[in-house]
């Protein structure tokens, strides 16, 4: 099973209902967003005037780069599918769910290091600085495809409120699903240049609109993995100290040290 979302740009009118419903459902701080709508054009595309929208969100990629860079200590996690079959695998603080294909975050284990935020080619993740605990000073956050709602039998908040049914949610692996039919009709994701990460939020529309979207918003290439690795290394380096602090019962310390690590890294980037 692979959950996916289709955005039908023939239907989308760029109204922003999806973005505001998401803020409301998930109490997203006003400075951030889990999904977005950019208006593109009017500009000339292959000699024709075009204007459309980029309603974006996490792509719950088939090979998510954000998962690979997470430096948190792995733990064993058991996933159960609809038939009751279980899969146990070792996951860091963010992982790809082997049952439904979504990419999720465990906030209680997230270190707030920001590696996943930086590696995501879609800017779909952010660090919510208000979420602070003993493990991390700020936590990574993003679209979950509204899994808690879906599990309660509801549609994702953005899909439910969409005024023109331009957002369609379902299982891409089920050939009879509406989303799979859209893929057959040519819906495609914004794969980064030269990449092969398999975005599962996909776009369908008139040729000129799709051309405009892909011209303006195809990610250039995957982020500089070296920089991310450096960050991961840094984070890993401070971890022993953090564990020691935990043993000592001085839980406040971890956040302080991580903030320092991140700050230094950012200084280097600027310099």
């Amino acid at each position: 099973m692979q959950y996916g979302m289709i955005i039908d740009l023939e239907r989308c009118v760029g109204c922003h209902a999806c973005t505001i419903a998401c803020l409301s459902e998930w109490e997203v701080p006003v400075e951030f967003h889990r999904n977005w709508v950019h208006r593109l054009g009017p500009s000339k595309v292959e000699g024709e005037l075009a204007s459309t929208y980029y309603p974006g969100l996490c792509n719950h990629c088939t090979k998510p780069p954000c998962v690979d860079v997470c430096p948190a200590d792995p733990v064993k996690m058991t996933f159960t599918d609809a038939a009751g079959k279980t899969i146990t695998q070792s996951v860091a603080a963010t992982w790809k769910d082997p049952v439904n294909g979504t990419v999720q975050i465990d906030k209680s284990r997230c270190l707030g290091c920001g590696a996943c935020v930086e590696v995501c080619p879609y800017d779909a993740r952010y660090i919510n600085p208000a979420m602070i605990d003993d493990v991390g000073d700020g936590k990574a956050d993003k679209c979950t495809y509204c899994m808690p709602r879906v599990e309660a039998g509801l549609l994702p908040a953005c899909v439910q409120t969409c005024i023109t049914n331009a957002r369609i949610f379902g299982d891409l692996d089920d050939p009879n699903s509406e989303v799979a039919r859209y893929v057959k009709k040519g819906a495609k994701g914004l794969e980064p240049k030269g990449g092969n990460i398999g975005p599962n939020s996909m776009y369908y529309g008139r040729k000129k609109d799709i051309s405009l979207l892909f011209r303006d918003f195809t990610p250039a290439a995957l982020a500089d993995v070296n920089a991310i690795n450096r960050r991961t290394m840094l984070t890993t380096m401070v971890k022993p100290a953090m564990r020691k602090a935990q043993e000592l019962g001085l839980l406040g310390l971890a956040g302080t040290m991580l903030v320092q690590g991140r700050g230094q890294d950012e200084d280097k980037k600027k310099g």
């Binding site: 109204c15 209902a17 973005t19 505001i20 803020l23 409301s24 439910q160 409120t161 005024i163």
Partner: peptide
């Protein structure tokens, strides 16, 4: 009031409300 949604019983707007409607709170 945490969130506003379209009334599922509505045969006018259904479960949809626009950006402004969602931002009513």
């Amino acid at each position: 009031l945490i969130k506003l949604e379209g009334n599922p019983k509505s045969i006018d707007n259904g479960t949809s409300i626009c950006a402004r409607g969602n931002a009513g709170i």
